[in-house]
Design a protein around this nucleic acid. Structure first.
Length: 241
DNA sequence: GCCAACGTTGGC
DNA sequence: GCCAACGTTGGC
């Protein structure tokens, strides 16, 4: 792919749920680690399930191959940006809406008149450290005062301008602000206590709780088993060299 | 688990 | 095309 740095590359922020949530028997969580695995296998992820018109319009009318996007992790203890991915297919009708078993099935979208659109994505690089929403909000009166994520909290796809893009990269290179770090440690302690209490209640060790917890993502979804079980159907072969 | 914010639906 | 009712998102 031609390097589009400094050219007409556009920048985006795309939200995915970090914590397991079962819809119609399917876990809708999707993490950067899952995308890295898919990418390593030479495949791409179809970014399906966007069911909001404004977000749809951005995908359908503005996204193009070579654009970059932050993968934002929502619905978890510490919502955050974990890394960067690249748009690697042209926008196309989202085929998840024709499948009655899909969590995002929409009978009103037809093949003749598709209502929803999707693009293929691959991971490019993780941040040196995750940048939390809490940290981004510290700049709401400064460099990030126009950022859609902060002003239009419910939009699942949003544009990021080049200044914001660069600024957030700079944040990721610096140590995490102590304020944010402390808040996360406090949250972790709470979690640990909860777990201990559960063990006490059971009267014995609960082995099911041994899963290592990321401070950012409170639930599973990043191990092989769940990845295979959950995502196989949505992974597309990647035809990019 | 709660609930504020806000997007969508549908009656008129 | 207004707007009340309803449904969803997502941070906390």
């Amino acid at each position: 792919m031609a390097d589009r740095e400094g050219g007409n590359r556009k920048y985006w922020l795309m939200k995915a749920e970090g914590e397991s949530r079962i819809v119609k028997g399917i876990d809708v969580a999707f993490t950067f680690e899952m995308l890295e695995k898919i990418t390593k296998e030479g495949k791409m992820e179809s970014w399906s399930g966007v069911r909001n018109y404004e977000a749809r319009n951005m995908i359908r009318d503005q996204m193009s191959i070579g654009d970059y996007a932050f993968l934002y992790c929502s619905n978890c203890k510490f919502p955050h940006i974990r890394g960067v991915m690249e748009i690697c297919s042209e926008p196309h009708p989202d085929d998840s809406c024709w499948d009655p078993n899909d969590p995002y099935y929409d009978p009103k979208s037809t093949k003749e008149k598709p209502r929803w659109y999707s693009v293929g994505v691959q991971s490019r690089y993780p941040f040196k450290r995750p940048v939390t929403l809490r940290e981004l909000k510290m700049h709401i009166n400064g460099k990030l005062s126009h950022m859609s994520l902060l002003n239009r909290a419910r939009l699942s796809i949003s544009k990021v301008n080049k200044d914001e893009w660069d600024f957030i990269h700079q944040l990721a290179e610096l140590p995490e602000p102590s304020e944010v770090q402390e808040a996360r440690e406090k949250e972790n302690q709470k979690e640990t206590k909860k777990r201990e209490r559960r063990v006490d209640d059971d009267g014995k060790e609960d082995n099911k709780q041994k899963k290592s917890k990321s401070p950012y993502i409170a639930a599973a979804g990043d191990d092989d088993t769940s990845l295979n079980a959950i995502k196989q159907s949505r992974i597309k072969e990647c035809n990019i060299k």
